[in-house]
Design a binder for these strands. Structure first.
Length: 99
DNA sequence: CCCATGACTGATC
DNA sequence: GGATCAGCCATGG
């Protein structure tokens, strides 16, 4: 198989825990799931994220991963998360911190 | 074991 | 805010 079952599941849980209308960064998910590095988050989503709210996960810059930008921003817009210049205002929509 | 790859990040310039 | 670079670490060749 690929990533350890435990970690794999924790990452999926972390992604599921992000409420609609909010977003989180790969780093946030990694921290919540206690993953060693954000890269693993991307890896898990890539191979097993099709049934998760993966569109709520953004890079630290507030932009989605390049190859997904289009689609992801549409999904976010549909849940009420506006993107200006293809980028989301993390200070406003980032889940967990502030508010 | 070494090397490349990748839905990443933070520091520098 | 973009371009570079160095860490990061699981996976596969």
């Amino acid at each position: 198989m690929s990533v350890d079952e435990q970690l794999h599941e924790r990452i999926r849980d972390a992604v599921r825990s992000v409420p609609a209308g909010r977003v989180a960064t790969y780093g946030d998910i990694a921290e919540i799931a206690r993953a060693s590095t954000p890269r693993l988050v991307g890896r898990v989503l890539s191979e097993d994220g099709h049934d998760l709210p993966w569109h709520r996960v953004l890079r630290a810059s507030g932009r989605p991963a390049p190859h997904l930008a289009r689609r992801q921003l549409e999904l976010l817009r549909a849940e009420g998360v506006p993107a200006v210049n293809d980028k989301v205002d993390l200070r406003t929509y980032r889940w967990g911190v502030r508010d």
